[in-house]
Design a protein around this nucleic acid. Structure first.
Lengths: 345, 345
DNA sequence: GTTAGCACTCGAATTGTTGGAGTGCTAATA
DNA sequence: TATTAGCACTCCAACAATTCGAGTGCTAAC
């Protein structure tokens, strides 16, 4: 009994779909009532016994119906991914009003997504690491403070306040600005090496101290962001799913969302995985496949969005294994598109 | 029986303290065992009956011990506030390493606080409303984009990207910068009125369009922040307290923390309340005293910190009514001091 | 190959039982 | 008069016993 016959596959799909809706184990009688399956419960039971032996479904206790195993979910999900023809359901366009600031957009995205799907959602801000310096500006605030503004590709702006020992004149500031811009423009963080630094220092002449400080600031500024920002929403939706909402489980889950450290690991894992595995940029972690312990009873569906210039981020949904995979994937695909076009548009 | 005798007050305090520790109703026998109260359980029972009649304690069911009522907690808390002599317990100084950015500091503060107290914590970023423009800087990014950087007192920096129809020359930019700085410097948002705007426009000559756009941007930038930023931590600590951790309650509570909308109301309420009511800047909401529905079984203790120039924010702790009020107040007082000195220092 | 029938199993929900903690009341005591 | 001992009473929490229904596996019949 190694083959997954048409009928078995049909039954399996019905079990999964029914379980997704109800959250209750599915019995043979229930299945036999489906219109396109005219067999008696007994027959179904035989098939179910086979399916269980093959590892697709599980009996939570001796006299209960069956629920999908991780392998079962995987079968179902792979089936979904296979049918590429899904049309993109339009997300309300209200979502992206004119907001220059990425942060606002992302916060809105997770909220909308959580609302649409009723699962927990997360999104990582575009990683800045591979991006280029677009321009640098030093502005004197007063005698002792200099504000450095660094803009990276993707229109990400960072500020930092620099303390000065001695005041700078307007000319000196201008000169430094020119030097910084001409030297740094278009460089990635990786391009700023020792040779470049010493070269800049020599050009700065008597201000080499300041250049050093500024460069350090720039590097700090950028690396600061390396600590990947993540926005989340809808963590409490977990309470909607009885199988996840016992106290301990819920606490661990929500804590992971609050702390975000583990989410970072997850995202690192996702972005590390060879991209485009499915061609759609969508990845699915079922149960133990996820690196986060508190989510071993959950499924995680993620999409990676790319803003060009190698900048990319990840948006994902975490919910019970009996998740409405189809709807979730549609939503993610749609978000991905929207995000990608918001930058181009 | 309208008087709160010494003995009654002693018993009341014992009931509250014991309940704070155990979370279980306190019976007469338990109380009679306290060393400084040499009476039999029966005597205690009489007193307890009185205390209940006076509204300080409650019997959750007919044959249970007593627990404090909101009025009881209030009595206890007022007693605590009265003794001003509390020494400031030092918080680990690691906390405030050199971080220029307020945001980082605040995030750290809530985390440390949640960790120290094991309750849920929140902190509001200093409200910018009353603050002054310190300086404004427009920098051309490319032909079509202009980056505006606005710095307010309290070293809060805001960026915004402005789309240009026609490119600006360097001179024009410089001129605009000078105009903006000389006109806006030292003003609060309230000071920017129509008269000022039209005056600036006329000075800007052919660039009045741009001035308008920039001013709007500046206003936006500032008002943007009016939507008060709030950082939270430790929401899941609620699960440590059985009386709060049933599913529905926990969901509502954590949701309030995730959404933050209600927290904003709370903070508005706090900052609205005539300050210094206690002289220490500490306020306590017990149960229904709080404006947030999902916290009607909690207590909220808050402190307002002031950074000078009218800039202030609020830091608070939300936990069960049987909260370790003393410890919490000490912690808040300490944080408040630290925050206030971090800006001056 | 499919189905009907039947005995069996298990969990969830309901009910009954018990024990302990705590009370209020009354009568005795200092 | 204030305090205490004693006692009957109440209620909850925990546990055990019972019932009920859904679902299974197996066998024999179609």
């Amino acid at each position: 009994m190694e083959e997954l016959t048409e009928r078995k596959s049909k039954i399996l799909n019905i079990i999964i779909q029914n379980y997704l809706e109800t959250g209750e184990p599915v019995g043979s009688r229930t299945i036999s009532k489906y219109p396109d399956l005219n067999f008696s419960p007994a027959t179904i039971r035989n098939e179910m016994a086979d399916l269980e032996e093959m590892g697709f479904i599980i009996q939570p206790h001796a006299s209960a119906g069956r629920i999908p195993s991780d392998k079962g979910y995987r079968f179902y999900v792979d089936g979904l991914i296979a049918q590429k023809d899904r049309e993109i359901t339009e997300i309300k366009d209200v979502m992206f009003e004119r907001t220059e600031r990425m942060e606002q957009v992302l916060k809105q995205v997770v909220k909308v997504l959580a609302n649409n799907t009723q699962y927990a959602t997360m999104i990582s801000a575009p990683a800045i690491s591979g991006t280029k310096v677009k321009f640098v500006q030093l502005s004197p605030v007063n005698e002792h403070q200099l504000l450095s503004v660094v803009m990276m590709s993707g229109n990400i702006v960072k500020n930092k306040l620099i303390e000065l020992d001695n005041p700078l004149t307007a000319e000196e500031t201008l000169k430094l600005n020119m030097l910084l811009n001409s030297s740094l423009n278009g460089l990635t963080i990786g391009d700023i090496n020792l040779a470049l630094i010493s070269q800049m220092k020599s050009q700065a002449g008597e201000f080499e101290d300041i250049i050093e400080q500024v460069l350090k600031t720039v590097a700090d500024t950028i690396e600061d962001e390396e600590g990947l920002e993540i926005y989340t929403s809808g963590a409490t939706n977990i309470f909607k799913y009885p199988e996840l909402s016992d106290s301990q489980r819920a606490k661990d889950f929500i804590e992971a969302f609050e702390e975000k450290e583990e989410l970072k690991d997850l995202i690192a894992d996702i972005e590390g995985t060879s991209e485009g595995e499915t061609g759609t940029g969508i990845q699915v972690y079922i149960g133990d496949e996820s690196p986060i312990g508190s989510m071993k009873d959950c499924s995680v569906v993620t999409a990676t969005y790319e803003l060009g210039d190698g900048i990319k981020g990840t948006v994902g949904i975490i919910g019970p294994k009996r998740m409405d995979y189809k709807n979730v994937m549609d939503n993610l695909t749609s978000i991905k598109k929207k995000l990608e076009q918001i930058v181009k548009g």
